[in-house]
Structures are given as structure tokens and as C-alpha cells.
């Protein structure tokens, strides 16, 4: 039992890494033509009902994928190397298509005044992208490496990487939006570190970043605090 179990996870790991490689290439290839074309954003309001149906559909497809994997594994072991690669490419294409479908429908905040943005983010209503959605913004393998750096024993599935990739994108959008609001208050043209630090100190949801983005303090004040706290301080 135990001996039979050990080789299986290794195979899975190898497959996941290979899939991430191909996705990396796709992302790189996809980015350049998009920047060249400079597509304009179309104003479309996605409906909540559609989202619900999509959310319901995704787990079914995932289950199907899980069911298909062992069959293909068996075939691959029997057949030669070349058809193995063909099978993988097919899988990647299917995954890419589904990703495109999902992303085209995902809403994103439009440019405008800060108030409108805040309202948009709260309500969840925003303009949709053009017909063709982008691939993953960040390289999947990089995110996997960072997660493994945090906990080496943790195994990460493909869906989790996609979810974290999207979450990071949304996090960046919201963070830069709030930083821009402070930038407007200061009436400056350039978004700088002080605005980011101000967001982190003001918003409680960003407390986990307080160690990385502290407010800038003059050396005199810091020395005073240190002397007041004593040598045994922080």
C-alpha cells in the first residue's frame, strides 16, 4: 500500500510543473501582441446571474478533469513519449480556452474619479474587458515557487494558483486605487512611497503589511523614541 502510493504524487508533481511551464510560454507570447495592438476597453456590465451559473459549472468541469487524468496516465505509460507531449498540449489548450472564457467575463474598474472607483469596487459593478481576455498576469511558476518557499511540504493545485493569481491582481488594483486617493489629496503628480505607507497605516485591512511599509519618520524622532523606551526596547 505505502510503496504503491509513493510514486503517484511524484508523477502528479512533474505534470503540474510541466503544465506551468507551457502556461509561462503562453503568457509571454500573449503579452506582446496585446501591448502592440493597444486594445480599447468596451463598456459591458456582466450580470450576477451569469456569474452564479458559471460558478456552479466550474466544479463540474474540475471533477471531470480529475476523472480523466488517471485514464490518460495509464495510456501515457503504455505509449511512447511523443504522444505524451501531444496529450499535454491538448490539455493546456483546453485549460487556456476556459481561462479566456472566464477572464473575458470578469469585471474590472474603469478610469475616472476616485469616488466613482470606490463606488464601483463596493458594488462590484464595473466595466468588462474587450472580447479577448488576458492570460494570467503573473507567471504561474513564480507564484508556485513563492508558495513552496513559505511551506515546502504544501502541494498546490492548478486551481489554487489561478485563484491566487487573480487575487493578487485584485489586491494590486485596490491598493493602487486607494494610494491614488491619498496622492490626490497631496495634489502631487507622482505616486510615491509615502502614499502607500499612508494607506497601510490608515486601513486596518492592510495590517499585515505594516511591518513592510512603515511610515517614514525623521531620525531625531526615532532616536527620541528609542531613548525613551530604553536600551531594552524594540
Amino acid at each position: 500500500m505505502t510503496s504503491s502510493n509513493s510514486p503517484k504524487p511524484e508523477k502528479k508533481i512533474t505534470k503540474n510543473t510541466e503544465i506551468s511551464k507551457t502556461q509561462k510560454k503562453k503568457t509571454k507570447n500573449a503579452e506582446t501582441p496585446k501591448t502592440e495592438k493597444k486594445k480599447t476597453k468596451n463598456a459591458e456590465t456582466p450580470k450576477t446571474e451569469k456569474k452564479k451559473t458559471k460558478n456552479a459549472e466550474t466544479p463540474k468541469t474540475e471533477k471531470k478533469k480529475n476523472a480523466e487524468i488517471p485514464k490518460i496516465e495509464k495510456k501515457k505509460t503504455k505509449s511512447a513519449e511523443i504522444p505524451l507531449t501531444d496529450g499535454k498540449t491538448k490539455r493546456d489548450r483546453e485549460i487556456a480556452k476556459e481561462e479566456n472564457k472566464k477572464k473575458t467575463k470578469k469585471p474590472k474598474l474603469s478610469n475616472g474619479t476616485s469616488k466613482q472607483r470606490d463606488e464601483g469596487s463596493k458594488k462590484g459593478v464595473a466595466e468588462g474587458k474587450g472580447e479577448e481576455g488576458k492570460m494570467n498576469v503573473f507567471p504561474m511558476n513564480r507564484i508556485r515557487t513563492m508558495i513552496k518557499g513559505e511551506d515546502p511540504d504544501m502541494r498546490v493545485s492548478q486551481e489554487a494558483l489561478l485563484a491566487i493569481n487573480n487575487a493578487v491582481e485584485k489586491f494590486l488594483e485596490q491598493f493602487s486605487q486607494e494610494a491614488y486617493a491619498f496622492c490626490v489629496r497631496d495634489r502631487k503628480k507622482c505616486l510615491s512611497y509615502d502614499h502607500l505607507a499612508h494607506v497601510v497605516s490608515k486601513q486596518r485591512r492592510y495590517d499585515f503589511l505594516s511591518d513592510f511599509v512603515p511610515e517614514r519618520v525623521k531620525a531625531e524622532d526615532a532616536l527620541r523614541e528609542r531613548s525613551a523606551a530604553g536600551t531594552g526596547g524594540h
Partner: peptide
């Protein structure tokens, strides 16, 4: 700074 914030965000979610 945001580069570091994003890394910390991923670590935070992973933890």
C-alpha cells in the same frame, strides 16, 4: 514597495 507587498500577500494567504 508594492513588489514586496505582493510577496507578503501571497505568504499571508499561504499561511
Amino acid at each position: 514597495t508594492l513588489q514586496e507587498c505582493v510577496s507578503e500577500f501571497i505568504s499571508f494567504v499561504t499561511c
